[in-house]
C-alpha cells in the first residue's frame, strides 16, 4: 500500500468489475428496446394528433425532460411501493411490496426516460420521409401500417440512427445511477471494491476504461448499421457488390 499509484490495482479490479457488466448491459439493452417501442408509439400519437393521448404524451415528455434522472429514479423507487400499497388497500389484494425487484424500478425509469427523449428524435425522422413516397405507397393500396413499415420506417431509420446511437451511449453511462435504487451494476461494484482496498483512483480508472471501451464498441456497431442501411453512393457499387442488396433484405 506504499505506492502512490498502484497499476496492479487497476488490472485486478477490471475482471471484478466485468463480473457485473451483464447487469449494466441488461439495463441498457432492455431499457433501450422498451423505450424505443414506447417512443415510436408516442411519436405516432403526436403525429396523428390523437386527442387526449397526444396532450398526455406532451406533458409526460416535458416532465421527463424537465427533471433529473436521479430524481426520477427516486420517484419510481418510492412511488411504485406507494402505488402497490394503494392497490392493496383499495382492492383488497396482497401484493408484497418488498418482493418487487430493485431492477424493475431501474428498468421502468430508464425505459420511460429513453421513450420521452427518443420520441422526439423518432418523430423528426418519421416526418423527414418525403410525402410523395407516402402518397405513392397509399396509391398502391397499402394500409397506414404497411406504409409505416415498408416506406416510412426504413428511411426514417437511416436518419434516426446517429441520434439514437448517442442516446444509447448516454444510456449506458446513465446506468451508473442505478445504485440509488439498490442495483449492483459496475459503478456500484466499483464503490464496493474501492471501499475494501482503498485504491479509489485505481478502481475508478478501471471503471472509466471499461465504459470507454464499451462506448467505442457501440460506436463501431452504429457505424456499421448506418452503412448497411443507407443507399450506396454509386451505381457501380450496386452492380459490383451484391452484398448491398443482400444486407438490405428484410427491411
Amino acid at each position: 500500500m506504499g505506492e502512490i499509484f498502484d497499476i496492479n490495482a487497476v488490472f485486478t479490479s477490471i475482471p471484478r468489475l466485468l463480473e457485473v457488466l451483464p447487469v449494466s448491459l441488461q439495463i441498457t439493452v432492455i431499457s433501450m428496446i422498451v423505450g424505443l417501442v414506447f417512443a415510436l408509439l408516442f411519436a405516432v400519437i403526436r403525429m396523428k394528433k390523437i386527442p387526449v393521448l397526444s396532450q398526455l404524451v406532451t406533458v409526460f415528455i416535458s416532465f421527463i425532460r424537465g427533471t433529473p434522472i436521479i430524481v426520477q429514479l427516486y420517484l419510481t423507487y418510492n412511488g411504485i411501493p406507494l402505488l402497490l400499497k394503494f392497490i392493496n388497500q383499495e382492492y383488497g389484494t396482497d401484493y408484497n411490496i418488498n418482493a418487487v425487484p430493485a431492477m424493475l424500478f431501474v428498468l421502468v425509469t430508464f425505459a420511460f426516460n429513453e421513450a420521452a427523449y427518443n420520441s422526439e428524435t423518432i418523430r423528426a425522422a418519421l416526418q423527414s420521409v418525403n410525402k410523395g413516397q407516402i402518397e405513392a405507397a397509399e396509391s398502391l393500396g397499402m394500409t397506414y401500417l404497411q406504409v409505416l413499415k415498408r416506406v416510412i420506417m426504413p428511411q426514417a431509420l437511416v436518419v434516426a440512427i446517429p441520434p439514437l446511437g448517442n442516446a444509447l451511449i448516454g444510456l449506458l453511462k446513465g446506468t451508473s445511477l442505478a445504485f440509488v435504487a439498490g442495483v449492483i451494476e459496475m459503478t456500484a461494484k466499483g464503490k464496493i471494491i474501492s471501499g475494501s482496498n482503498f485504491r479509489f483512483f485505481e478502481v475508478y480508472l478501471a471503471l472509466a476504461i471499461i465504459y470507454w471501451v464499451m462506448t467505442i464498441i457501440i460506436e463501431q456497431l452504429l457505424r456499421y448499421m448506418e452503412r448497411r442501411f443507407s443507399i450506396p453512393d454509386s451505381a457501380q457499387a450496386v452492380n459490383r457488390g451484391g452484398w448491398f442488396s443482400w444486407g438490405r433484405r428484410g427491411i
Binding site: 418525403n130 402518397e135 405513392a136
Partner: peptide
C-alpha cells in the same frame, strides 16, 4: 394506379 409528377419512387429500394 397513379403516376406522379415527381415520380415518387421509394428511394431505399431498387
Amino acid at each position: 394506379a397513379m403516376v406522379f409528377q415527381h415520380f415518387n419512387l421509394f428511394q431505399h429500394r431498387t
